[in-house]
Computed example of a mutant assay.
Amino acid sequence: MTSTTTTTGSNRAALVTGGSRGIGAATALRLARDGADVALTYVRDEDGAQAVVKKIQSYGRRGIALRADSADPDAAPAAVRRAADTLGRLDILVNNAGIGVLGPIESLTPTDVDRVLAVNVRAVFLACRTAAGLMGDGGRIISLGTALSRHAGGPGSTLYTMSKSALAGLTKPLARELGPRGITVNLVQPGPVDTDLNPADGPLAAGQLSATALNRFGSVDEVASLIAYLASAEAAYITGTEVTVDGGHAA
């Protein structure tokens, strides 16, 4: 695939990892509404992924679903290459796929540690490495962390928080490295967001809710709108930073 300069409006091409549900699905749909063709990855939820693709196509954009288990070291780079080859270019990479294994530190096994770090850290690094070689000038790389890694980590979240903290260490030097090409690299740090994995009416919701200044969970669309802004031409001067969207969880 020939590298080309990113357009500032429509007709861009994006890859959203973990795009079959939650923040990933909302982001894929928002980017499509903003004029991008979108590839998304999934592991098991093929029905959900195909439903998102159909919605993308209803906006008049191209959409494709790629099965990719980020725990496999070859999966993330392969997905980036397939997205670029199928869509003809790659302008936006959203590293959204992630897993959380929660529990007291003494209960976490070496297998837990390996899988969380493989999905949340190694796969992101490898996707960024591959995308950097395929993107034209003006590309966008946006990763999803968690506000827990910056301000409010708690008992039981040690492994998950550690893995997400690594993304800040990736974002800043990569922004410096790719800056001369106009490629921006940013990290979004969501707070409590209402998803299937962390519902606003779930058993762990009360403590999260009371810790926010707005006294509510965020929506996936609110996070997606921030990601879409960082992917836009208007955000061309924002790079190497962490942007928190947490309803005042850290206020």
Rank of each mutant, 00 (worst) to 15 (best):
residue 89 R to T: 12
residue 82 R to V: 12
residue 175 A to N: 00
residue 190 P to I: 04
residue 80 V to S: 07
residue 39 A to M: 10
residue 197 L to T: 11
residue 168 A to C: 06
residue 225 S to I: 14
residue 90 L to W: 08
residue 217 F to H: 10
residue 185 V to I: 13
residue 141 I to Y: 00
residue 172 K to R: 15
residue 133 G to T: 15
residue 114 D to M: 11
residue 126 L to D: 03
residue 4 T to A: 09
residue 198 N to I: 09
residue 107 S to H: 12
residue 32 A to C: 10
residue 203 P to N: 08
residue 81 R to W: 05
residue 19 G to A: 05
residue 67 R to S: 14
residue 169 G to R: 00
residue 247 G to L: 10
residue 180 P to F: 03
residue 100 G to E: 11
residue 163 S to T: 06
residue 61 R to L: 12
residue 52 V to M: 09
residue 64 I to Q: 07
residue 45 D to R: 08
residue 192 P to A: 10
residue 169 G to N: 06
residue 40 L to T: 01
residue 70 S to W: 05
residue 151 H to M: 12
residue 76 A to R: 01
residue 12 R to P: 01
residue 82 R to I: 08
residue 243 V to W: 02
residue 181 R to C: 05
residue 212 T to K: 03
residue 41 T to A: 04
residue 187 L to N: 01
residue 164 K to G: 01
residue 82 R to Q: 15
residue 93 L to H: 02
residue 200 A to S: 10
residue 23 I to V: 06
residue 8 T to F: 05
residue 216 R to F: 09
residue 56 I to V: 03
residue 96 N to P: 08
residue 136 G to S: 13
residue 122 R to S: 04
residue 233 A to R: 15
residue 96 N to H: 06
residue 147 A to Y: 01
residue 112 D to S: 03
residue 217 F to A: 06
residue 113 V to S: 00
residue 124 V to K: 03
residue 154 G to Q: 15
residue 10 S to G: 14
residue 86 T to Q: 14
residue 204 L to T: 14
residue 149 S to I: 04
residue 22 G to R: 06
residue 109 T to I: 10
residue 208 Q to G: 14
residue 3 S to I: 15
residue 189 Q to V: 13
residue 66 L to W: 05
residue 22 G to T: 04
residue 147 A to L: 15
residue 18 G to C: 03
residue 209 L to Q: 09
residue 104 P to H: 05
residue 13 A to G: 04
residue 87 L to C: 12
residue 168 A to H: 03
residue 166 A to S: 12
residue 172 K to D: 00
residue 132 A to H: 01
residue 71 A to I: 10
residue 205 A to W: 02
residue 164 K to Y: 05
residue 122 R to N: 04
residue 62 R to F: 07
residue 70 S to N: 12
residue 17 T to A: 02
residue 210 S to E: 13
residue 148 L to E: 02
residue 84 A to K: 08
residue 47 D to Q: 13
residue 187 L to M: 09
residue 103 G to D: 11
residue 134 L to K: 12
residue 84 A to F: 00
residue 120 N to L: 08
residue 183 I to M: 05
residue 158 T to I: 08
residue 242 E to T: 15
residue 241 T to Y: 01
residue 243 V to E: 10
residue 251 A to M: 15
residue 155 P to K: 12
residue 72 D to T: 03
residue 98 G to T: 00
residue 251 A to Y: 07
residue 117 L to M: 14
residue 210 S to R: 15
residue 186 N to L: 03
residue 231 A to S: 13
residue 174 L to F: 02
residue 31 L to P: 02
residue 246 D to A: 15
residue 126 L to T: 07
residue 206 A to Y: 01
residue 233 A to F: 04
residue 136 G to Q: 01
residue 227 I to W: 00
residue 3 S to M: 13
residue 159 L to I: 06
residue 180 P to I: 10
residue 177 E to D: 14
residue 70 S to Q: 15
residue 204 L to V: 15
residue 41 T to R: 02
